[in-house]
Design a protein around this nucleic acid. Structure first.
Lengths: 184, 184
DNA sequence: GGCTCCATGTAAGGAGTTACATGATTCA
DNA sequence: TGAATCATGTAACTCCTTACATGGAGCC
């Protein structure tokens, strides 16, 4: 049947797929620049620390998904990374194969915590909820600022992608407001 | 200065805190029942597989946060777990110490993927987006069903907690609709 | 000459996953 | 008596994190 070797490589982690897709989309770039982009990302989930990114790139190169070319003019040993045809295919396959679990609510540490808010003394609950609202509002401001900037740069597609986070944060705020009313 | 020993234990992971808070809230229960609760939870983030839950409980017991009592009447070696006073304090401290990052948008694999949707051929984008919408709708139905059931059981507090997920999913759908329009 | 950024990497360790292993209880 | 469920655990492995280590490039 199908060759278990070329096709059937064990599926990628989210981080691997994410890095691969990023390189596929943004063209040749260094590991360092990828790391920076993750660092500046609004969701801190993706840290892409050195200890994860360099081994990851080695793995992907060994699997034939990435190519690396030393930048001749740079004495620092810079490597430009680009996707191989197989790498591009893999990134597209990752996008097209929508897993069933993907529709699930995202893991939100605020929701997790609020499941247990009754552990606090009655008077302590509302202040905690309000701290969470403040943190969410601060985050929302950052997201909106980032959207404005992207729009100003004419990067409407990226602004639209980021707006997903804004939708989420506004929904969270609406919910927290309801929860606060309940515990007030 | 402050005793580094009693107070200063390295902060808990989300899973540890979650298990601790769960035991604190739901009273004595077995590791098995905790595992079941996580399995049935609507967010599959928390698997709490045997390989994580049992070592975790041992760690927490060693740290003096949990107590375990063998259930005498059970020949299966069942252990009832309960929180120690220190454990309850730790759970409350976890809830009260709202970290700055908590306001950030949650890591949503759908948002992650949609950042890269331009990697697909133009005709492939909308179908993928619609699959994601379907998956989200299915999830929303499950969440709403679960809320109805909780309300029917008079567990309004729990229903309110779950409704946070409904808010998030509806926001995601609204955003996906906008994205679909853009790519249509 | 020294500071900051660019750039790549390793080492030790933690936490979680899957798969395996074992055995009691309950119910048809 | 056999199957499903209750119940606890270990072993091997993967990935990620933090902290460390190294050195060139650009600028004042």
């Amino acid at each position: 049947m199908a060759s278990a070797d070329t096709n059937d490589r064990k599926s990628m982690t989210e981080l691997e797929a994410c890095v691969l897709a990023l390189i596929a989309l943004e063209g040749p770039c260094t590991a360092y620049s990828i790391r920076k982009q993750f660092e500046e990302s609004l969701t801190s989930t993706w840290h892409a620390s050195t200890g994860s990114i360099y081994p990851l790139i080695r793995r992907m190169t060994e699997r034939g998904l990435l190519d690396r070319h030393a930048v001749a003019s740079d004495g620092r040993g810079s490597n430009e990374l680009s996707v191989t045809p197989a790498g591009k295919k893999a990134a597209q396959a990752w996008l097209k194969a929508v897993p069933e679990w993907i529709g699930e609510p995202a893991a939100d540490p605020i929701r997790t915590r609020l499941n247990f808010v009754r552990l606090l003394a009655p008077g302590e609950r509302v202040p905690v909820i309000e701290e969470m609202m403040d943190a969410t509002r601060a985050s929302l401001r950052r997201v909106e600022r980032s959207m404005d900037q992207l729009k100003a740069e004419g990067r409407d597609v990226d602004a639209l992608a980021v707006s997903g986070a804004a939708y989420e944060l506004r929904a969270r705020l609406a919910w927290l407001k309801e929860v606060r009313t309940y515990y007030a």
